[in-house]
Design a protein around this nucleic acid. Structure first.
Length: 259
DNA sequence: CTGAACAGCTCCTCGGGATC
DNA sequence: GATCCCGAGGAGCTGTTCAG
């Protein structure tokens, strides 16, 4: 089952022995009662068994806040090696705390107290990885490098606009060839970024507004719904309708309604 | 370090058809 | 009718090289 999230990273709790596959590479066996921290951006992550209620979604702001909170000197930390798998696995003994964190991480609330409580729960979950040498490099990897972040920000400012590389480059006051080089140095490309922005927006529209596929495809800058579906499927591993259905059947509201 | 040029490749659109 | 899949062709992007 493909792991879907619009956040920078997730933490997954396993109830039983599970196979984890990242970018279709060799499967990794995860023991039962483990928690796995995964950088999700740009990765295709599949679990042989996955209970979406046991997935805590952590956004970039929470990661930034956590790094400030632990107050460690970050400048000397070696970056995560390009070949390193972007995850850490630890045994976990207090699943009830984790389940609370996972539940809160998908709640949409403007209540300051609830937001602070969610953040505290996620901090508690993250702290389980503190003694792992890969932990801080992995968190730093989730914070975007300058150029790709600026490209994302430009595209997200008007996601429906028909962006091209030249237009984005001129917004950044540089040539398209220079922009390509800078993005390549950050291990990404314009195509990857625009697809990622479009797919995240599409997923939001699917679950939040219940729009049909045609209008979502157009909103995301695709003139062909069929192409949109194929891109969505290659990005999330499931079709848009399946995604929306899966989200609805796994939300706490639905679980409460069906219990 | 930056920009320009170019070959090869990927992505997107379009059209058609199958399935639910 | 809506969704999904597939193939062909063209547009645009990537990677690389070279020059300033």
């Amino acid at each position: 089952m493909r792991l879907c999230s619009s956040k920078a990273c997730v933490v997954v709790l396993t109830e039983s022995k599970t196979k984890l596959t990242i970018n279709n590479n060799e499967a990794i066996i995860i023991p039962e009662k483990s928690i796995i921290l995964l950088a999700i951006e740009g990765q295709q992550i599949d679990f042989s068994q996955l209970n979406t209620r046991f997935v805590a979604h952590i956004d970039r702001e929470t990661v930034k806040a956590y790094l400030r909170f632990i107050d460690k000197k970050l400048t000397g930390i070696a970056p995560l090696c390009r070949h390193d798998t972007p995850f850490i696995c630890r045994p976990y003994r207090t699943p009830e705390v984790f389940k609370q964190a996972a539940l809160h991480s998908v709640m949409q609330t403007t209540d300051i107290c609830e937001i602070k409580r969610t953040r505290s729960l996620l901090f508690t979950v993250l702290s389980n990885f503190l003694d792992d040498v890969k932990f801080l490099p992995l968190l730093l990897k989730m914070l975007p490098p300058a150029t790709s972040a600026r490209v994302r920000s430009i595209i997200n400012s008007d996601i429906q606009k028909e962006w091209c590389l030249d237009a984005v480059a001129s917004n950044l006051f540089m040539s398209s060839s220079l922009l390509k080089k800078k993005l390549k140095n950050e291990d990404t490309s314009y195509s990857q970024i625009i697809t990622e922005c479009r797919m995240r927006y599409a997923a939001e529209q699917l679950v939040a507004h219940n729009k049909n596929i045609n209008s979502i495809a157009l909103c995301c800058g695709y003139h062909s719904p069929s192409h949109f579906i194929s891109v969505f499927k290659s990005f999330y591993g499931i079709t848009p309708l399946h995604y929306a259905h899966q989200f609805r059947t796994n939300t706490p509201e639905h679980l409460a309604a069906t219990s």
